[in-house]
Nucleic acid binder design. Structure first.
Lengths: 187, 187
DNA sequence: CCAGTGATGTCACTGACTGACATCACCGAT
DNA sequence: ATCGGTGATGTCAGTCAGTGACATCACTGG
């Protein structure tokens, strides 16, 4: 028999989601999460930097995918076109069965200021990544910063709309619709 | 003699800024801030919800001014025009001597993830306020959300540029320049 | 002169997070 | 086969943020 059950991090993630949803973030202690996952609190902090991070592990992947899509855009694409490609790349993350999970997770986050803060900084880090990706494409720094901010704003608004939309609406459609609204807005 | 020196909150704010700048946020304890301000840690938490908030007290005022400017925009102004007026209203907050203070404060915040998180949620709250202001003007919800996000993005980018710009550049000029960049971007 | 108020202090407590050290199944080299 | 790492974990003691309950006492209005 293995000395430890494998995938402690995964068990901790699930335990945290369940407890946060059940008793709320504030009503849950790290010790309780660790207990349910069959480890000690000390081990929790070896896998996740803090009590919030357990809900955000893996969010770097989303950023990486978006940056990859940005880099893969045709060399002659405008900054905003490249950003559009990046935002559309996020769609793959949320297709299919992830929708329910996304909803539950979003509900927990929305109800806890501390988790909202953490989500915001993840978005900001996404903005930074996109900005750097644009700079690598030779885009002017100010334009890059603004295009990245705008792209993340589109993502955020779209995600919000998608979560509350009927089940059969794919997120890519929502994103395209949001982009259309944006160009009408600034026209 | 008064029983207590007046303006404990003000003294706490100054002590916190000084210590955060000197030893860093992590290297400073609430007890030290309170000591320097001549009160106890318990009193610190009576004035500020937590160790971060001491740097953000008063930020609601900025939001209020922007919302007021939004409401004061002509009834026939487009959503983006109204948002522009709101963002330009922020200029009054940062004119004159506030620039140095803003720079020092921004430096401390930039160097501490926890403080960056808090700043981001203040921005998000500003976005919410602007969105509500636009809804009150009868703007379509999706358009309102996006216009608000865009407005705050413009504010954020402009503020960043202003902080690093030469001393004689007024923030209003930077904002106007950023807005110009934005319309070029989405054209 | 007296009762009430409000800003503060004191104290005890919970819970997040950290550093140091011990443990022990597993794995690769001898 | 066995011996010396290695890595994921447990244990323990400690710091510090943040909270609730209660005491204090200058000031204020009657």
């Amino acid at each position: 028999m293995a000395r430890w059950e494998p995938d402690a991090a995964g068990r901790l993630r699930e335990a945290a989601m369940a407890l946060y949803a059940e008793r709320g973030y504030d009503g849950t202690t790290v010790a309780e999460i660790a207990d349910r996952a069959g480890v000690t609190a000390r081990t929790f902090f070896r896998h996740f930097a803090d009590k919030r991070e357990v809900l955000f592990a893996g969010s770097e992947l989303l950023g990486q995918d978006m940056v990859a899509a940005l880099a893969a855009a045709p060399a002659d694409a405008s900054p905003m076109e490249a950003v559009t490609a990046a935002v559309l790349a996020s769609a793959e993350f949320f297709d299919g069965t992830r929708r329910d999970y996304s909803r539950r997770r979003a509900a927990v986050i929305a109800s806890t200021p501390e988790l909202r803060e953490r989500e915001l900084i993840k978005m900001a880090s996404m903005t930074t990544s996109l900005t750097e990706g644009l700079l690598a494409r030779g885009v002017d720094p100010d334009v890059a910063a603004l295009a990245a901010e705008t792209g993340v704003a589109v993502f955020r608004v779209s995600f919000e709309r998608w979560i509350t939309a009927p089940d059969d609406v794919p997120i890519a459609d929502v994103i395209r619709s949001t982009l259309k609204t944006l160009s009408a807005l600034t026209a």
